[in-house]
Write a protein that binds this DNA or RNA. Structure first.
Length: 689
RNA sequence: GGCGGUUUAGCUCAGCGGUAGAGCACUGGAAUCAUAAUCCAUUGGUCCGGGGUUCAAAUCCCUGAACCGCUACCA
């Protein structure tokens, strides 16, 4: 018997469940059910991650023990999954004694093998930020550069897993398993990531700082930090709790780890190296899906009145409609939009108009003409063969497409069968046949073939809409019992139809037509000669200076460019200026430069400075006239400014600014503010950037 | 900056050397068993731009643009 073991990430117990959690879990549920109807033995795992600082703090705040806190909070997930008809076989919690014992066993094994070592770390520790900072990262008062609270010098020992030593082994594995990560472009990303040296992984926290965790078996003053604690759930659940499938074959390794694209690195780098060290077989696939963009990513604002909370849709339109939309609308791997209009359109056209309606048609026809008892087919003609052939083809395609988890496509394939039934009914017009008693046999055939095709459609859709599929099957007097039912000819005739009402009532709400998006104007490449006129350079005043928390040579400045709001600029001036020298200084800002993140902080522009010493990477800021005010524009003499347009560094690099006689020039064009020259105190001929 | 991806009908996407496709939306018609549902037909495309390879390019190569992802002390 073939096996299928799928996992979701364990969700952090403190998080409020949202569309992201729901999607992964629904996806896992649907994949499990698809495998089930194809005769696989399945195991489906989800759960909660219950250790860590946030839980510890939340519990303290509420005045309960961490255990009491998580015992209460994990229900938010468990209850939601029950409500959504999620059929997980086990719900693991990282606070379960069996899991903790398993984690400790693994840690001890690695310690004994010498795969874990301890290292002393020394540095300035900020309690507020829970992390270390380097000497050069501290702010001017020798305080934490983010919260500006005092830091303390801390010498701390921690434990590290020798992850780096598995780099080559992991690369070799990936090279021989190109389908290990789905979609393939994610494989590529990880392969790229591994071109740089892989560091060892810090896996501990001293108990003094974090008490709510699993103690290291070889040093009980420490707990293990998230990685071993959380990731090992996939193995502990399938070895410490449930070991084998019904037929005795072991459950581990997992067939698929379903994850969001945000935790790709932990699952495809940290996790496999951990398993390699432990001599545990690796999972067969990692499947990273995209994100649901709600409310147009963030473009649509609340004031636009189209804010959508996806979780409300489950309540309002039913679990199965919600599941169907999630599965049909998102191409696995890519991001997708969750919009009200798309939801209504999708549910109405697929589930109400096509599936629900055709079921209702057949149901009523049998009720009205055969007193609710399905007749048997009398003769199979060409039109019937066409339906039967399509049904068989669809079943084959589902079987074939399943390993790639191409859900939206599989569903579309099933819908083709559904639509073919409506077409068949239209061609045969059983309501006309019913008017002539001599055509009763032909009528019987039409209704039998339609009913059987509806039955198959419902069975095929059962993984996606289990509740409604069962309801629909009951309407035509049958049940879905085993994988053998996934074939033509299970209905025999004589089945008594049940009660019936529309399976998916049409959502009677107005929906906007999809709007044409104005095509983005093709920006012509900017010629070097166009650059000076396109640059928006403004006088700005530095209001705040802070050190960049993660970079040694960068300041994070807040500058006033006369726009009301302050701009954040990251600037590599640490080698050239002290913070107090910069405070309140007037500078020249390149304002229409495309913003970009520098070591995690968005920088909205760039300052002009002349090169002082290329070796030492020092520079001198350009000076603007004394009377210039923030917001005043700097222009090249004789060049009229163009319409503002966002520029890229690449565009800027097409021209060269340099110093001549203490003033700044672009070739022969002098740079001026209010008619007075912009100057810079560096040697003639030096560049300005 | 480095690496990678995407760009095809109004919308969402498939096709990845051999006459441009699907679903939804639009327009017209048919039908009346059914949830104002269905069916048929029609409409709608410089397959991002430019160059090249080929008998043949949406598809392969080069180049430009826009957007996106990973990565990086370019600011």
């Amino acid at each position: 018997m073939k096996n299928f073991y799928v996992t979701t990430p364990i969700y952090y117990v403190n998080d409020a469940p949202h569309i992201g959690h729901s999607y992964t879990t629904v996806l896992a549920d649907i994949l499990t059910r698809f495998h089930k109807i194809l005769g696989y033995q399945t195991f489906f795992l989800t759960g909660t991650d219950e250790h860590g600082q946030k839980v510890q703090r939340a519990a303290e705040k509420r005045g309960v023990t961490p255990q009491e806190h998580v015992d209460e909070y994990y229900h938010r997930f468990e209850d939601l999954w029950k409500k959504m008809g999620i059929g997980n076989d086990f719900f693991i919690r990282t606070t379960m004694p069996e899991h903790k014992a398993f984690v400790q066993e693994c840690l001890q094994k690695l310690w004994d093998k010498g795969e874990i070592y301890s290292k002393e770390y020394e540095g300035w520790y900020s309690v507020g930020e829970e992390r270390f900072f380097g000497e050069d990262e501290l702010d001017e008062n020798k305080c934490d550069p983010i919260s500006h609270r005092p830091v303390e010098w801390l010498k701390e020992k921690n434990y590290f897993f020798k992850m780096g030593s598995y780099q080559q082994k992991l690369i070799d594995f990936l090279e021989s398993h190109k389908d290990w990560i789905v979609p393939d472009y994610r494989w590529n990303e990880i392969r790229g990531f591994l071109r740089q040296p892989l560091n060892d992984l810090c896996i501990s926290r001293p108990k003094a700082r974090l008490s709510w965790g699993i103690p290291l078996p070889f040093d009980t003053d420490y707990v293990t930090y998230v990685w071993f604690d959380a990731l090992l759930n996939y193995v502990s659940a399938s070895t410490a709790f449930h070991k084998t499938y019904a037929d005795g074959t072991p459950i581990w390794p997992a067939t698929y780890h379903l994850i969001g694209k945000d935790i790709l690195t932990t699952h495809s780098v940290y996790w496999p190296t951990m398993l390699m060290a432990l001599d545990i077989p690796l999972p067969q696939h990692i499947l990273a899906h995209g994100w649901w963009l709600v409310n147009g990513g963030e473009k649509m604002s609340k004031s636009a009145g189209n804010v959508v909370n996806p979780m409300d849709y489950m309540e309002k339109y039913g679990i199965d409609a919600f599941r169907y939309f999630l599965a049909r609308e998102m191409v696995v791997g890519q991001d997708a939009n969750f919009t009200h209009d798309a939801f209504v359109r999708r549910i109405n056209s697929d589930l109400a108009n096509d599936l629900g309606n055709v079921l209702n048609r057949v149901h009523r026809l049998v009720l009205n003409n055969f007193e609710g008892k399905l007749p048997a087919a009398t003769s199979i003609g060409d039109a019937e063969k066409e339906v039967i052939d399509l049904a068989n083809k669809v079943i084959a395609e589902i079987k074939e497409g399943l390993p790639q988890a191409r859900l939206s496509q599989s569903i579309e394939t099933i819908m083709q069968l559904v639509r073919s039934i409506n077409r068949y009914l239209e061609v045969k017009a059983p309501w006309k046949l019913a008017k002539d008693p001599s055509l009763k046999d032909e009528l019987a055939t039409v209704l039998y073939v339609s009913a059987e095709a509806v039955r198959l459609s419902l069975c095929l859709l059962w993984p996606v809409i289990p509740g409604k599929a069962e309801e629909g099957l009951a309407m035509i007097g049958c049940k879905f019992q085993s994988a053998d039912d996934l074939a033509w000819g299970i209905l025999k005739g004589g089945e008594a139809f049940g009660e019936g009402k529309p399976l998916f009532p049409r959502i009677e709400e107005e929906v906007k037509k999809p709007e044409a998006q104005p095509k983005p104007k093709q920006n012509k490449p900017l010629m070097a000669a166009d650059v000076p006129a396109a640059m928006d350079m403004r006088v700005a005043q530095i209001k705040e200076v802070a050190d960049h928390p993660d970079a040694t040579s960068l300041y994070v400045l807040k500058v006033d460019a006369g726009e009301g709001e302050l701009r954040t600029i990251c600037s590599g001036l640490k080698n050239s200026y002290k913070a107090e020298e910069l405070q309140n200084r007037k500078i020249l800002l390149f304002a229409n430069l495309k913003p970009s993140a520098l070591r995690g902080i968005m920088s909205q522009g760039m300052l002009f400075a002349g090169d002082l010493d290329n070796e030492a990477h020092t520079c001198r800021l350009v000076s603007v006239p004394e009377d210039a005010k923030p917001g005043d524009r700097a222009l090249f003499k004789g060049v009229a400014p163009n319409e503002p347009r966002e520029l890229k560094v690449k565009d800027f690099e097409k021209i060269a600014l340099s110093v001549k006689g203490g003033a700044v020039f672009c070739d022969t064009l002098a740079l001026e503010v209010n008619g007075k020259p912009v100057t810079c105190d560096v040697a003639d001929g030096n560049g300005v950037h």
